[in-house]
């Protein structure tokens, strides 16, 4: 039968020219409306059957196929127009998306990586050492001989009296690095340390220290100042003001404290910085000649700088965590 084919071809041409929904609706009425072309064919079925010398039933089937095909073409065009017009099929664009489930990294990991990346950019490698340590590495080689006053400030968790303990700082790793690696070295040591302490909101018997050490033939306090200033500017913001001031630590000489200017008051002094205008970030200094010597390094030829930061406090400030215990009891997931 010729007629359906002709109508289909015409409809295709019409649809191709359609530019908007209202135009499409006109086309739909033209072909499929009550007085549309398809209905008028259905009304003339008998006549058509005679003309084509076919059974009326046969013609009915053909017309139904024509109708279905037209409906399909119009629906298809409608979807295209809707999607193109930005209204889409039945989508509420404001409903929340269905998110794939991914896990969360621990705050330590986020901040430690940020710090590691900064120092890696300055040629430092990440280094680690054992938690169970000997008195020799925790104290003797850290220039804290027996009876040194600072020992009493570091009440240790003891495994075997008196010589085996959980390291009370990560300076032990500095010694192990100096002993085991070829000079020059540039290392950061993010690691846990342990002290005999009852956990409360601000103190715990476990804490993370972020230490670093560089030893070479030509390092001075200017290098220390430069490296740590670069770190502070990258970590705390480009506009961060940094200062070093004299401060005693047994592991270094000359020693210094590293401060950043208080961001809250701009150095004028406020409650956050205890009216000092500055906030202490790290203890640092030139590696003590005794420490170099004890680890087999000639202090007249080599020099080095080292620093240590209390990492948990920085993490807590950065991520608004109010209780150090939450870092260690699974409460953050």
């Amino acid at each position: 039968m010729i007629v359906p084919e002709t109508i289909l071809t015409a409809a295709r041409q019409d649809l191709a020219a359609v530019k908007g929904i209202s135009q499409l609706e006109e086309i739909e009425t033209k072909y499929l409306g009550r007085n549309g072309k398809v209905n008028s064919l259905f009304k003339n079925m008998k006549k058509l059957a005679e003309e084509a010398s076919k059974d009326v039933k046969e013609i009915g089937k053909e017309l139904n196929r024509l109708k279905q095909e037209l409906e399909r073409l119009i629906t298809e065009k409608k979807e295209l127009l809707l999607a193109d017009g930005g209204t889409g099929p039945d989508i509420d664009l404001t409903l929340p998306g269905i998110r794939p489930r991914i896990g969360k990294l621990h705050p330590h990991t986020l901040v430690r990586r940020q710090m590691n990346d900064i120092f890696k950019g300055m040629g430092f490698s990440v280094y680690e050492g054992p938690h169970i340590e000997t008195d020799e590495y925790v104290f003797e080689r850290a220039n804290l001989p027996k009876n040194h006053p600072a020992r009493s400030l570091q009440d240790t968790i003891i495994i075997e009296n008196p010589d085996i303990l959980l390291r009370s700082h990560t300076s032990s790793v500095q010694s192990r690095a100096m002993e085991n690696l070829e000079l020059p070295i540039r290392l950061v040591v993010p690691g846990f340390a342990f002290r005999y302490e009852t956990p409360n909101q601000t103190n715990h018997f476990i804490f993370l220290q972020y230490e670093g050490i560089a030893v070479a033939e030509d390092l001075t306090m200017a290098d220390l100042h430069g490296a740590l200033e670069t770190f502070c500017k990258m970590f705390f913001g480009r506009d961060t003001k940094v200062r070093i001031r004299c401060k005693y630590y047994p592991q270094v000489e000359p020693g210094c404290g590293l401060d950043i200017q208080c961001k809250f008051c701009g150095g004028k002094g406020c409650a956050v910085c205890k009216r000092r205008g500055w906030v202490e970030i790290a203890g640092a200094g030139m590696v003590h000649a005794n420490m170099l010597r004890m680890n087999g390094i000639d202090p007249s030829r080599y020099s080095g700088f080292a620093w240590g930061m209390g990492f948990d406090r920085i993490v807590m400030q950065k991520l608004n965590i109010d209780d150090i215990r939450k870092l260690y009891n699974g409460a953050l997931i």
């Binding site: 300055m122 040629g123 490698s125 990440v126 280094y127 690696l181 000079l183 020059p184 070295i185 540039r186 290392l187 560089a214 070479a216 033939e217 030509d218 390092l219 001075t220 200017a222 290098d223 100042h225 430069g226 490296a227 200033e229 670069t230 940094v242």
Partner: peptide, 13 residues
């Protein structure tokens, strides 16, 4: 002064 680290970079550990 604050000086950028300028000595040879050790081989990464």
């Amino acid at each position: 002064p604050s000086r950028a680290l300028s000595s040879a970079i050790p081989l990464p550990v």
